[in-house]
Design a protein around this nucleic acid. Sequence first.
DNA 1: TTGTAAGCGTTATCAC
DNA 2: GTGATAACGCTTACAA
Lengths: 336, 336
Amino acid sequence: MPATLRDVAELAQVSVRTVSNVVSGYAHVSERMRQRVLAAIEELDYRANPVARTLRTGRTGMLALVVPEIDVPYFSELARDVIDAAAEFGYRVMIDQTGHDHERERRLLMGDDRTMLFDGILFSPLVTKSELLDMHRSEHMPLVLLGEHEFDGRFDHVAIDNVQAARDAVSHLVAAGRTRIAAIGAQPLEEYSTPLLRTAGYEAALEEAGLQARPGYATPAPHYSRTDGYEAATALMALDPRPDAIFCFSDLLAVGAMRAVFDAGLSVPEDVAVVGIDDIEEGRFARPSLSTVSLDTPFIAREAVRRIVARIDDPSVAAEEVVAPHRLVVRESTAS
Amino acid sequence: MPATLRDVAELAQVSVRTVSNVVSGYAHVSERMRQRVLAAIEELDYRANPVARTLRTGRTGMLALVVPEIDVPYFSELARDVIDAAAEFGYRVMIDQTGHDHERERRLLMGDDRTMLFDGILFSPLVTKSELLDMHRSEHMPLVLLGEHEFDGRFDHVAIDNVQAARDAVSHLVAAGRTRIAAIGAQPLEEYSTPLLRTAGYEAALEEAGLQARPGYATPAPHYSRTDGYEAATALMALDPRPDAIFCFSDLLAVGAMRAVFDAGLSVPEDVAVVGIDDIEEGRFARPSLSTVSLDTPFIAREAVRRIVARIDDPSVAAEEVVAPHRLVVRESTAS
DNA sequence: TTGTAAGCGTTATCAC
DNA sequence: GTGATAACGCTTACAA
């Protein structure tokens, strides 16, 4: 049975109030008292019960990080940075994965029975903007969106400029002399979401270069997985004319795509150049190493935590739209 | 302000006791009452406050998963399975990373001020056995060890047979005709830990094949990262005689090692065969695809959660030692 | 500066 | 079967 505040007070011959003051670092407590209390705490090996504290204060000191899949490298690398950033602000992180399940996302936003266990949600969503707006009850739970573009300023969010990032990647392929540039990751069904923005950037870059968007060149990829990339690229390799470059909406797709190109008896970058987005470590060690658009994940994580903490402290602060920097990283997979 | 049990009781004209009974699905509630309460809950959009419930029951419904680094693929794939398995048992998972910091591990096991936020710990440790034994106060917090061998039965743990797994990997290299077999991942400083067991398996397999353990062939790798693998393999490639095979203690090391072999102007598997342990998805898409010892992560996750839940329900249950199955998966990186 | 006591929202122990 | 009521361990007015 762990010791309670009361036990400490009894042993130290002081009131619980004084013990509480000492524990929470309250200023006005005499040195004599403080020492006596500290000694009692030490002797009883007392630790404050965070649950009781939470019930009283309404703060749990926990953030929820909600991602589609934690084992997708981009998300696990993001999670790592979020956990570190949260620690700096005195928060811990609970991770939930929605598994590409819109219903699970919905329940989380509506506030299921355990929502109150954390002070705020960092949410990397699948759902479209309009759905989000309708679903979330911002009154009840601070929310920061990750990697999602939002226009009406109702939510905090931190994301890269997805249109520009896609544009940079495709323009790089153009500059490398590629003319038949395909894309993997376009999601025709979603609105206002990352895939749509990246598709827009892809098309804008093509147009800018005076290249046509050929039929069948923009392919979908439901889960942004290696397997999705593999299958999409396999289909692309069978096209006539065959693409001489593939822009993948994520590095994971690109890893799968590269493997598909090899299995089709072709080579990267000679026959087909490949570029991704995310800059996961896997791409740096791949063969050939993967050109990509690097996102500043530590920055994204830090900003997201900073925003959520600000909103927890004052729910009425205006929503902020943080644009994280990105930059093109050229490696072997797009060498001319 | 969210509605409370009291609000519901007032609106439904019943006692809080009755409302609580309805909410927690208590049997003896008349249908009339139940309907009235349900209507009031619906109207007020009531959700039970999990913190208050926790204070009363002592259960938070949360498990902590502690790993060195969440963005190491093996751990993120494990985390995914743990989260899923925990959900089946009605638990959620908080993830903490120790960042290879023994001090952070120690604090966690000693029970820092927020330990009471979860009902049990699933711990994938760095520290040695003896340290663990001294540090953890099992009376206070149910604990299940992952991936660590333990002999004295004081802790639940689930792990593969590390000696045998390493033996299988090395024997496979021997069967493929390799005679100069190096290893990456040996950690001379740790006792009773995974690296030591895998080193033992490596040496046993060599001896069995009548091969000598050459000086400099067993190299350390502090973090089991791609970079560690790269550096170790680079050093190995400069050795005379040069190894014709490398057994890596993790797939991530193997990925780095393969890249180092290429950068040394050699090829896998022709000049150097490479085999890892873990069977992360990255290895299946690598070029060449990586031979490995596949661990049944869903099994490990499920067993670990099953054990921790059993221990939460009854702290006095005897510790169990679960051995998870493993199997050799031969791919391109060790083709003869 | 320190003590007393009233909650925070549940669950559980009593009675009825 | 249902209603009061006392905890759970803490923070914080309010007193002293």
